[in-house]
């Protein structure tokens, strides 16, 4: 009937706190590992990802080739490791750019309101009214078929949802008392926006961003699979799966290992985001 809970839940137990900390630590360890692989794939990879070795083409997984080899005899394990940069690294860059742009534009729209808000949000509406993958494909295709245009296309498709989310938050943050207090000591719009308002959106944007790394990875590998992103001989995961299409029945390992890599990274990011948003409540 009446929300008694509000009073009680403020002093929730320690247990959630501890598991939240463990979760944060293991997620950070995972991200650090990914970053190391992205910047120094050579530390882990036994072979050069581009070196052809036609004699050993389409070898099944063995001690020499952990994940087997592809139609050029290249080591799939090494290619998956080197491909982390093009797949996960690029996804991270996309999310960083999209969330940054979205946050700033959304905060500006929410804070100033009026005409700025109206035009910015109509622009956001235009982007959000298309299915995002179709829009990304169209943009990537028209910008040229390479990795750079795929990244640009995905940034363009992704920022509007951040802008809308942040704008909504700013509308409530700007009514808070400490914003009024900041105005009474003479803070300018710029100072209020960057010192007080945007830092208060970090948490929700962070949760959203870590989830989006997963979704962007799927989209990016999807674009590459369709030939709109990375081009041969890049070891990008989506492209590898695309190449493996002709050998699916005879050489299962060729498509399965890049696929597992995608699955693993996507689910870990989404799981982490889920945990963060849970701990926040």
């Amino acid at each position: 009937m009446i929300r008694l809970r509000a009073k009680i839940s403020s002093s929730r137990g320690q247990s959630t706190n501890i598991s939240h900390k463990v979760g944060t630590w293991s997620f950070s360890a995972f991200v650090i590992l990914l970053l190391t692989v992205i910047f120094f794939p050579g530390l882990f990879a036994p072979y050069d990802p581009l070196e052809l070795d036609v004699i050993n083409r389409l070898q099944a997984p063995s001690k020499a080739h952990l994940f087997g080899t592809d139609e050029g005899g290249r080591d799939i394990f090494s290619r998956v490791l080197y491909g982390t940069k093009d797949s996960v690294g690029a996804s991270m860059v996309i999310v960083l750019m999209a969330s940054g742009t979205g946050t700033i534009l959304g905060a500006i729209a929410g804070w100033f309101g009026g005409r700025i808000d109206f035009y910015l949000m109509r622009m956001v509406d235009v982007f959000l009214s298309f299915p995002y993958l179709v829009l990304a494909m169209a943009l990537a295709a028209s910008l040229g078929r390479d990795m750079r245009s795929a990244i640009l296309a995905l940034i363009l498709v992704w920022w509007p949802s951040y802008a809308r989310m942040v704008r909504g938050q700013v509308l409530s943050i700007k009514e808070r008392l400490f914003i009024r207090a900041a105005r009474t000591v003479g803070a300018s719009n710029f100072q209020i926006l960057f010192w007080h308002i945007i830092p208060h959106t970090y948490r929700t944007v962070g949760v959203r961003a870590s989830m989006d790394v997963g979704y962007v990875l799927i989209s990016l590998t999807g674009l590459s699979f369709l030939g709109l992103g990375a081009q041969n001989p890049s070891p990008e995961w989506g492209l590898m799966i695309s190449n493996a299409r002709s050998y699916v029945l005879a050489s299962w390992w060729y498509s399965v290992f890049p696929g597992i890599a995608i699955l693993l990274v996507v689910s870990l990011f989404i799981y982490a985001a889920d945990r963060f948003s849970g701990a926040e409540r």
Partner: peptide, 21 residues
């Protein structure tokens, strides 16, 4: 309770809430 605003669900009618029990 102390805080009249926090104790109510603002989106349900007064009578409905009180008679829920």
């Amino acid at each position: 309770f102390q805080d009249p605003i926090a104790s109510w669900n603002l989106s349900r009618k007064v009578g409905t809430q009180l008679l829920d029990a």
